[in-house]
Each structure stands twice: as C-alpha cells, then as structure tokens.
Write a protein that binds this DNA or RNA. Structure first.
Lengths: 228, 228
DNA sequence: TAGGGTTACTGGTCCAACCAGACAACGAGT
DNA sequence: ACTCGTTGTCTGGTTGGACCAGTAACCCTA
C-alpha cells in the first residue's frame, strides 16, 4: 500500500476510534511522527476532507468533524470493520437500508423496465455454484434490477451499500453475516418470483417479494448475533 | 478556492461530461496544462480516487472508471448540477430515494424512539418563518427523526441526500425544485401528524404519513418540470 | 518469428523553500 | 487598569526540482 494510503488509514482509524478529536496536529508534526514527508500527509488529509471527516482551514487548524452529523454514506465500509473488529450494529443498519432501497428499486424496476425480468431469470443461482460464483451472481442480479430503475441515484446507492457489505469479507469475526448473505443468494424461489413480478409489471408484488427476501436476512443475522 | 480544488473541479466536470474518458494525461502533463505544480494535480487526483471516479496505477496510467458501475452516492451533489446546468432527472431520483429512506426512517423511529415525537413537535414551521429559517427547521426535523432510528447508516444516508439537495441552491435553473421543497417544509399538518404517529409508537401510520408527505414533492416537481 | 532485455514513460516520495491566512501575545495609547 | 492595534509566529497552500519504483512498449537478439 502506498505510504499516503497507510497514513490515511491510520488517521481514519484514530478518528473513528475517538482517539483523534478536535484539532489535528499540524501537517509538519504528523509528517514527523509518521516518518514521512509532508506531501504524503497532505494527500492523506485530502482524502479525509473529501469524505467529510475533517475540516481544513488555511491559517487555522484542521479539525475532526462530528461524524454522524457530517460524514456521508461512503463511510460504510470503514464503519462495518471499525476498531479493527466487526461492528454488528452498523452492519444490521446497512442491511435495513438495503432492504428499504432494494424493495423500492424492485417496485420501480417493475414499473419502468419489465423487460429486465427476463435478464434476472438468467441470473438465478444453481446448486452447483461455488461461494464465489454465488456472490458474483447475486451481485449481478441486483445490479441488473437496480439498473432497471433507470435512476442513477439508485444505482449509486447500490454501489455504496455493496461496498459496505463487501467490507465484511475482511473481518474473520463476521462468519454468521457471510453465511446469512450466502443463504439469501440461494433463495432461488423468491428470486424467481421477484423476476416474474417484474416481467408482468406488478410493482406491488415486486415490492412485497423483495421486502420478504431482504428482511429474511436481517432476522437471520439478528438471531445468529444473539447466539454466536 | 484552493488551486488543487479548482483542478479537482475541472477534472470532475470533464469526467462527468464524458469529455475525459479512458486514460488521463500524465500528472506532469496535467500540471503543465493547468499551469500548476504537479503536487496540486496529485491532490486533486487523490480526491477523485477517493470518490471512485478514477483508478490509479503506479507505473501505468490513471484511468477514468465507469461512473454508474463504480461511483458512490457521495457523487450526488455533482450529479445534480452536472454540466453546469441543473439535472432534472437525477434530482427526481434523489427525491425518490429520499422518499423511500425517509419513510422507512419514520417507521423505525416510531418503533424505537417514540420520545423523539415530542422534539419533532417543537420543530414544526410557523407562517412567519423566512425561507432560510424554513429550510433550517426542515433539516432539523428530519435530522431529529433519523437520529431516532438509532442507526448510523440511516443518519449518514440522510447527510448524503441532503448534501445532494443542497447542491440545488447553486443552480439558478432549479427554481421550481426549490419552490416545491419549500412547500413541503410548510406542510405543517402532515409534519404534525407524523410526529404524533411517532409519539404513539405507530410505525405503520408514521410510514404512511411520511410517504405521502415526501411523494407529494415528487409529483409537484414533476408537474413543474413538464410545464416550466 | 519468438524471446528477453533495455529504455522511456508512469505514478510515489522526498527535500527545501516560500506564500498566505489566522491567531495570540504584546505594547502603545487612553 | 483597560482597550485596541501591531507584530510575530503559527497554520495550511504552493512551488521547483530531484530521485525511487513500477509498467509497458520497443528493439535487438537467438
């Protein structure tokens, strides 16, 4: 990993930990403590700034912002694996958000792009698939569905949420989450039902089926989290 | 605006225009064409990288990524005012997303934090309010409601969506959008109904009321867009 | 013609300055 | 003793030039 990337990560972790609050040390100081050049530090800070984690003032100090009040959804991947360990609460939140948006996307897709239903039928999982293939097929399924909404914001929201969920892979403490998501990808019956609802332009059925499908994972994960 | 910020903006615009595709010119070239130092260019590119707009490879070229496939929701502000002029289609998408998430947040808030209802009653608009006060009160209302979901992801989603809608301010071609959003903030009756549904822990009513409230703005905006 | 090595390009890092804005400490005037 | 302006020193912003570290294309050889 490039040096500026390492610095970015360490600063990010410190901010999410709460280790780093208020005013950051000066760029010159940070450069010295990290044993790096000031430019490397600046590039790291530029990325934090882009993520609305810090506020930079020429002449004044760079300050850490209140995360819940200022950060955007692109923080999800960091949140899910914050503090080095897996963060159950945040991940359930991501799944809830996904259920809400996914169901609405299904509705819009049924309204606007019924022809996508046929594509979705080609993206149903088989029993013979490996875990990796399963994940890829699942991602392709939802990508196609969301593309059918004809709405770039929905598409971007899917990207952001999937990035958040992919962060789970990096954490060994999250096996039950992975398992629950795999189980969801294997629910061929519901996935097919959803595809057919879209094909026949039935927004209400699409919404209902998607809600059921996506909420099942949430309860599965909740149960697994309670008895680990 | 800092120089690196200007460069960032120009590159971003060129990417969203489709003017800039495939491989970017080298950092040294860009520095020369912008009449700036290479470090300034690098900082701009670091921000593009953080937004998943470009892919940087040491030794190889920096390439523009496929935006719908890779960018995240934090791109919304840029999207709404892309190409210098206002982008109706994207903005309607943002409103739809907001309606979907806002209604779900209302449901969760009613389930988990009924006490927030009282706060919301204090954040109802008065007739005497100026446009700025109205906007501030509206923002505070939804912030309090989303905080009641006890879910950081929902909070971050709100931040991202509000950032997208605030970008409208910068565009003079979007008066009808501004007007529609102001009208929404003035719908005291529905806002109060929603607050009371939350107070009495009635998720279904909260969801329904929020949906009605938020969808009204969408149709209002659609009508205004058709007859400008 | 197929292979490998050289070379010219890419981004990554460093150093050492200097510019520009903010802010606090200090001293003159009241 | 208090107020207010000046000034010094801190902050981030920008510059130039140099070198390291990869990639990829090119050319020369077997």
């Amino acid at each position: 990993m490039p040096l500026s990337g390492q610095i970015h990560r360490q600063l990010m972790d410190a901010i999410l930990d709460g280790t780093l609050t208020g005013a950051l040390p000066s760029e010159r100081e940070l450069a010295e403590t990290f044993g790096a050049n000031r430019h490397a530090v600046r590039e790291a800070i530029k990325r934090l700034q882009q993520g609305n984690l810090v506020e930079v003032n020429q002449g004044g100090a760079t300050r850490v912002l209140d995360i819940p009040a200022h950060a955007g959804l692109d923080l999800l991947p960091e949140l899910v694996i914050a503090r080095g360990t897996f963060n159950d609460e945040a991940t359930v939140g991501v799944l809830e958000l996904r259920a809400c948006i996914g169901a609405d996307a299904a509705r819009l897709c049924a309204e606007r792009s019924p022809h996508v239903g046929a594509q979705l039928l080609d993206l149903l999982p088989h029993d013979a698939m490996s875990d990796a293939e399963l994940a890829a097929t699942g991602a392709a399924y939802w990508t196609a569905l969301v593309t059918g909404t004809d709405s770039l914001p929905y598409r971007l929201a899917l990207n952001t949420l999937m990035a958040g969920l992919e962060a789970i892979d990096d954490s060994p403490t999250a096996k039950h989450f992975m398992a629950a998501l795999r189980d969801e990808s294997r629910r061929t019956a519901d996935l097919e039902l959803l595809a057919r609802a879209i094909t026949r332009s039935d927004p209400a059925a699409a919404h209902a089926t998607a809600t059921r499908l996506l909420n099942t994972s949430i309860t599965a994960v909740r149960n697994a989290a309670d008895r680990p």
